[in-house]
């Protein structure tokens, strides 16, 4: 566009290659940005994230930053200032049960609202889904998963398991190569989120050259504190339309405090499991009480009492072992 000609309009897609020459001219062009105002769908997804997830302040802050970047990117793109689609592949690190999958799901919704993916669904995959059993089995399998995830988010849990450095004949190598290639070529169609423990993920990145550089956003999910775990428990009971009695809350706090120090503690997932077991104990308690001729009230049905929460049974539960309990 010739300088000094007619005034450029907001919708113009013809910016001069060197913006510095005509910067003054563009200062007067007003751009409509309804997305940035309150009440948009993006705001709604972020709000839901805030409400549904306890703590994780750092994660939420990162997501807000990303949303802002993408929103402004979209405005710039509308004006023709930005052409290439940004790299959105992410890496979520953290211990089990810290909310990685949930955030990935919200991520899909967020990217869909922002118009960076066409569908925004979440496909969860792990090594078994990607790596084949014999020669020539891996590529079709991996490709199939990638196809299903197209237009949405591919969430690879414990991504480092795909690649086994100690076995050079492992087919994981092939899956990783295909994944890398697709992450590069389908940047605009597919967002890959790799998740897992932090230290093992870092080793994975150093083992596979070219992977780290294709991932733009690293988000770390910290463990929850006891207070945060209790907040999660309250949120979950409310969701299931139960109420924790005061003794139940105290018993649960004590139970979690002890569980937290044990190996295999899975943060939010452990809370959910503890509550699931409490619900079952409550049901058994009510069932037996009614058969013994006790009168049942509506309050009984939604109250979890102190005796329902696993406390003394911990030793028994511990002996049975099992991860994620």
């Amino acid at each position: 566009m010739a300088a000094g000609g007619e005034r450029p309009s907001g919708g113009a897609r013809s910016f001069p290659p060197d913006l510095a020459d005509s910067a003054g001219l563009w200062e007067e062009v007003v751009v409509e940005a309804p997305e940035l105002l309150e009440g948009g769908p993006v705001e709604e997804v972020l709000g839901r994230l805030d409400r549904e997830l306890v703590a994780l302040h750092e994660v939420k802050r990162r997501l807000r930053e990303l949303a802002a970047l993408l929103l402004v990117g979209r405005l710039r793109r509308r004006l023709g200032l930005e052409t290439a689609s940004p790299t959105l592949h992410m890496c979520f690190t953290g211990n089990p049960g810290t909310g990685k999958t949930t955030v990935a799901m919200r991520m899909g919704e967020l990217l869909y609202e922002l118009g960076y993916v066409r569908k925004g669904h979440l496909v969860v995959a792990s090594r078994e889904d990607l790596v084949g059993q014999y020669v020539g089995h891996t590529a079709p399998r991996t490709r199939e998963v990638l196809r299903r995830a197209m237009g949405g988010v591919l969430f690879i849990d414990e991504a480092y398991n795909i690649y086994r450095l100690d076995n050079e004949r492992d087919y994981g190598q092939e899956a990783v190569e295909l994944l890398l290639q697709t992450m590069e070529s389908e940047r605009g169609n597919l967002v890959v989120i790799l998740a897992g423990y932090r230290d093992r993920m870092e080793r994975f990145f150093s083992d596979v050259p070219g992977l780290g550089s294709r991932i733009a956003h690293h988000v770390d999910f910290p463990d929850y504190s006891l207070g945060e775990l209790m907040a999660i428990a309250r949120l979950m009971t409310r969701e299931h339309r139960y109420r924790l009695s005061e003794e139940a809350e105290a018993a649960l706090r004590e139970h979690l405090r002890r569980r937290m120090r044990r190996p295999g503690f899975a943060n939010g997932r452990s809370v959910r499991n503890a509550l699931d077991r409490a619900r079952m104990r409550q049901a058994v308690r009510i069932y037996e009480a009614v058969r013994r001729g006790r009168r049942l009230t509506a309050g009984d049905l939604f109250t979890i009492a102190g005796e329902d929460v696993e406390g003394r049974g911990l030793e028994r539960g511990g002996a049975r072992g099992g991860r994620g309990r």
């Binding site: 066409r118 569908k119 669904h121 990638l146 196809r147 299903r148 197209m150 237009g151 949405g152 389908e186 169609n189």
Partner: peptide, 12 residues
């Protein structure tokens, strides 16, 4: 190709 959501996968 079953379970596709996005036509781009098929186009590829």
């Amino acid at each position: 190709m079953f379970d596709l959501r996005d036509a781009m996968a098929a186009l590829r």
